[in-house]
Computed example of a mutant assay.
Amino acid sequence: FLLAYWFYIDGVDTIIKMAVDYGMSIGFESNDLIVALLIVQFVGFPAALIFGRLGERWGVRSSIFLAIGVYIVVTIWATMMREKYEFYVLAVAIGLVQGGIQALSRSYYSRLIPKNQAAEYYGFFNMLGKFAAIIGPALMGVVGLTMRNMLMPDSPSAEQIKAVGQEASRWSIASIVILFVIGAVLLFYVDDEKGRAEAEYLFKN
Rank of each mutant, 00 (worst) to 15 (best):
T14M: 07
A4V: 11
S30Y: 03
E56H: 13
L2S: 04
S169A: 15
A93E: 02
E56S: 14
V70R: 13
R53E: 02
A197D: 10
R61N: 08
E193K: 15
V40Y: 01
A67V: 09
I94H: 00
R111W: 09
V97K: 08
D191W: 12
E120Y: 09
P156Y: 07
N126M: 12
F7H: 09
G59A: 07
Y201H: 14
I26L: 01
I134M: 03
V12T: 04
G183W: 03
A103F: 05
L202P: 04
K204L: 06
E200S: 12
W171K: 00
K130T: 03
L179E: 07
M152R: 04
K204N: 14
S105Y: 04
K130G: 05
W171L: 03
P153H: 05
L151Q: 00
G136R: 11
Y85F: 14
L90V: 15
I113A: 09
A4R: 05
L96M: 15
D10M: 03
L38R: 07
A48T: 15
S30F: 12
M24Y: 06
Y5T: 01
D32I: 12
V164Y: 08
L2C: 02
Q98H: 13
I39V: 14
G123R: 10
L49C: 10
E200H: 02
D21T: 11
M140Y: 01
I135Q: 05
E193T: 13
D192T: 15
G23C: 08
S62D: 09
A133D: 08
V142F: 09
A67R: 07
V73D: 05
A47W: 00
V60S: 14
L145C: 07
I39T: 09
A4E: 09
Y5F: 14
A133F: 11
V43Y: 00
S155H: 12
P137N: 08
I182Q: 01
V143I: 15
L139W: 01
S105I: 01
A36P: 12
Y22T: 07
K84H: 14
N126I: 02
L49A: 15
N31H: 13
T75F: 01
